Simulated scan of single mutants.
Amino acid sequence: MPATKHIAASKPKRDPAPRASVTFPPELYEMLEAIARNKKVSVAWVVRDAAEKYVAEQRPLLEKSQ
């Protein structure tokens, strides 16, 4: 019996999410790690969550200046 090749269905290509490299003071990073452990998520998730909340708070200020 001949071997058959499995052809995966191709997914539509999406633009990759932008990446950023951030340096934290050691004490702050330790706090981020502790929060992540507590929530059982990654440090990256904690940072994205915090950034989303910060941007949401700033949105009214940004809209006023435009």
Rank of each mutant, 00 (worst) to 15 (best):
R48G: 00
T4E: 15
R59W: 04
K39P: 08
I7Y: 13
E57M: 14
K11F: 14
E57G: 15
K11H: 10
P26F: 00
H6L: 15
D15N: 07
T23Q: 04
P12K: 03
M1V: 12
A50W: 03
A3S: 15
P12E: 08
R59S: 04
K53A: 14
P26G: 03
A8Y: 15
A44C: 11
P25K: 02
E30M: 05
A34K: 06
R48K: 06
N38A: 10
A17M: 11
E30W: 04
P16C: 04
L61I: 00
V47H: 07
K53F: 07
M31Q: 14
K5D: 13
K13A: 13
R19D: 10
T4H: 14
A17K: 12
P25I: 00
A56K: 14
K5W: 11
F24E: 03
R14F: 08
K39I: 02
I7L: 15
E27L: 05
V22H: 03
E57N: 10
A3V: 06
A50N: 00
V55K: 07
M31L: 06
V43W: 01
L28H: 03
K39A: 12
A44F: 01
E52G: 02
V22P: 07
L62T: 04
L32H: 02
A44D: 12
A34D: 05
P26R: 07
R19S: 11
V41E: 02
A17Y: 02
A56P: 03
Y29N: 15
A20M: 08
W45K: 02
V46Y: 05
R14D: 05
A8P: 07
D49I: 02
P18Y: 02
K11Q: 15
K5E: 15
Y29A: 08
P18W: 02
Y29T: 04
